[in-house]
Design a protein around this nucleic acid. Structure first.
Length: 362
DNA sequence: CGAGAGCGTTATCGCTGAAA
DNA sequence: TTTCAGCGATAACGCTCTCG
């Protein structure tokens, strides 16, 4: 029995150099694609490398260059199609520029996000893209900045952190969506988000530490108040962190005596579960309840009725933030940029006037 | 416990020989 | 004689592991 695993001798530049009868330096020049080498020697080295199946040792390479060629990405929830599409945008832009991506999931938990950032810095990523779960505790993000590594923020801006940021106009688009519901005659409109807070109950904006959601709720409440709706904040529901939790929230909301006649969902995962609960309760969209959701997820266009959605340019969001970061990695000295991408609403069939029964009671 | 070798690669320096 | 393409030698990188 062997006590130690047999060493698998990997082919190095030295081996290739020996096989090609040149020095290590010359072989390295050919394999690394730098410096000047004659065509004959280049051919010899390439042939030797191919014969030996040489593969560069990236660890050793980054030891001398100080670069890893890797971009670290920390997102809130990999399972959410919003983030998977954004990551797709990031990785496409990264690959085009010769970078790879390491992905970490924070589950929207600040401790996990901090650990992920620490891990990625330990892995010596060249730069990081983060969707900060909280605007309150950003010491770990300042640390990145201070370590000289570029940082870029995706989807969520932090006023106190002057780094490249790509977002959408969350407040403005939430206002437009809310206005559609108000114009349809709704007075009891709920906003449902995954973001949670102390006590799981909404009191005021100060509780909401996820900047994009704070913006949205602000926009939502502003339009409600402008329409003369009394205490719209009582319909803000927090903690729809998973399908199970969303179901709990939706059940509680829809079984109450003053159930809302319209719902604005903060993401498509929440909206799908709410849609299920509505149907299971024998209610109809939009006759009994109107529904609008953030994110034009695939399923929203194939339901009966199809769902009115806020179409965020998710792929472009990811692509743009990666491009900003890569520009930074290449030494661009320009001041930090805050991009706000345009957003639109696809009006489909899930919004109608409030049902009479409820309207009478209200 | 500290010194130092070793890992694979890159980058710099300096040498050689041939062309101008 | 000068110039420079083409190449070799080697220090340096940051860490682990061994040795004294």
């Amino acid at each position: 029995m062997k006590r130690t695993a047999p060493k698998t001798p990997s082919i190095t530049v030295s081996d290739v150099a020996r096989a090609a009868n040149v020095s290590k330096a010359t072989a390295a020049r050919v394999l690394g694609g730098y410096g000047v080498v004659s065509d004959m020697i280049r051919a010899d080295v390439m042939a030797a490398a191919k014969a030996l199946d040489y593969r560069p040792n990236e660890l050793a390479r980054s030891m001398t260059t100080g670069r890893s060629g890797i971009i670290g990405v920390v997102v809130g929830d990999i399972e959410n199609p919003f983030f998977s599409l954004a990551v797709r945008g990031i990785s496409d832009a990264a690959r085009a520029a010769g970078f790879n991506v390491i992905l970490a999931n924070s589950g929207e938990r600040i401790e996990v996000e901090k650990a992920a950032v620490r891990l990625l810095i330990g892995k010596r990523v060249d730069g990081l893209i983060v969707t900060p779960a909280e605007s309150r505790d950003i010491s770990h993000l300042r640390d990145i900045h201070r370590s000289g590594r570029p940082l870029a923020l995706l989807d969520r801006a932090l006023p106190d952190l002057d780094v490249d940021t790509v977002t959408v106009d969350d407040r403005g688009i939430a206002m437009r969506a809310t206005r559609i519901l108000v114009d349809a005659g709704h007075r009891n409109i709920a906003y449902v988000t995954a973001v949670d807070a102390e006590g799981h109950e909404y009191r005021d904006l100060g509780q909401i530490y996820t900047s994009s959601v704070r913006e949205r709720i602000d926009g939502f409440l502003t339009v409600c108040r402008d329409a003369g709706i009394d205490r719209p904040e009582r319909y803000v529901r927090l903690g729809a962190t998973s399908p199970i939790e969303t179901r709990r929230v939706a059940d509680a909301m829809l079984s109450g005596p003053d159930r809302p006649t319209a719902i604005l969902a903060s993401d498509s995962v929440i909206a799908l579960e709410i849609f299920r609960v509505i149907r299971e309760r024998g209610l109809r969209v939009p006759e009994d309840i109107s529904l609008i959701t953030f994110h034009d997820a695939d399923w929203t266009s194939v339901t009966t009725p199809p769902i009115t959605v806020i179409d965020q340019p998710v792929y472009a969001l990811g692509k743009s933030v990666a491009e900003l970061l890569i520009r930074r990695l290449k030494g661009d000295p320009r001041p930090a940029e805050r991009l706000i991408l345009p957003t639109s609403i696809f009006e489909r069939g899930s919004v109608g006037p409030p049902s009479n029964a409820i309207a009478k009671r209200a």
